[in-house]
Simulated scan of single mutants.
Amino acid sequence: MRKIVLAAAATIGALTLAACSETTQDSAEATASSAADDMGMMATDAADAMGDAAADASAAADEMGEAAKDAGAEAADAAGDTADAAENAARDAEAEMKQ
């Protein structure tokens, strides 16, 4: 009878250990799956942030190009105005000398 009780106790212990091990394994799988999902979401968020930063940098470069073009046009206009003013001053000086 002792052998039967000991065998039953050993069987119950083994089944308990197997059930605990299965629960632990399920819990570990759930944790690993959750961690993988979190890593995927963080990678997606990082990619989105990098895409937004690239778009912002591109927009800034476009604005700088437009500003440079505008500055060049304004410099050309100023140079033309200066040349016109110098020509007018030279005519005025020539007219003054003729009088």
Rank of each mutant, 00 (worst) to 15 (best):
A95Q: 06
E66H: 03
A79N: 03
A85H: 14
A28S: 09
D56G: 05
D45L: 05
L6H: 10
S27L: 15
D56S: 06
E74I: 02
Q25T: 09
A57H: 01
G40D: 12
K69C: 05
K98E: 06
A73N: 09
A83D: 11
L15A: 12
D92L: 01
D56T: 04
C20T: 13
V5A: 07
A71Y: 11
T44C: 05
G40Q: 12
D38N: 04
A86D: 04
C20E: 14
A85K: 04
A57V: 02
G51P: 03
D56P: 00
A86N: 06
A68Y: 07
R91A: 13
E22M: 15
E96L: 07
A85F: 13
A10V: 08
D92S: 00
A90R: 06
S34R: 14
A7F: 03
E22N: 11
A93P: 03
A89D: 11
A71C: 05
D62R: 05
A67N: 06
A73L: 12
A89Y: 00
A14F: 13
R91W: 03
A59K: 12
S27W: 11
K69D: 15
T16N: 14
A59F: 05
A43M: 07
E29P: 01
C20V: 15
N88I: 10
K98L: 15
S34V: 07
M39T: 07
K3Q: 11
M42V: 03
A73E: 13
S21D: 14
A35S: 12
D48A: 06
D81G: 06
Q99M: 12
G13A: 12
G13P: 02
A86H: 07
A95Y: 02
D52N: 02
E94M: 09
G80V: 09
A43F: 05
S58P: 00
A35T: 11
D37S: 08
A18T: 11
A60D: 12
A8K: 11
L6I: 08
S27C: 08
K69M: 09
Q25W: 14
L17T: 14
A9H: 15
M42L: 09
A14E: 14
G72N: 03
A54M: 05
A10Y: 01
E63S: 08
E66L: 10
A95H: 05
S58D: 06
T31M: 14
A19W: 11
A60T: 04
D81Y: 00
A28L: 12
D84M: 12
A55F: 00
A19Q: 10
M50T: 08
E87R: 02
A83Q: 09
M50W: 07
E74S: 14
E74T: 13
M41S: 08
G72P: 02
S34T: 09
A35C: 07
D45S: 03
A73V: 06
L15Y: 05
E22P: 00
D37E: 13
D62C: 02
D70M: 05
M1T: 04
T44V: 10
Q25C: 03
T16G: 15
A18I: 11
S58I: 06
A57D: 08
V5P: 02
A95K: 04
A30Q: 07
R2Y: 04
A75Q: 01
Q25H: 10
A53T: 09
A79T: 06
A76M: 13
A19F: 15
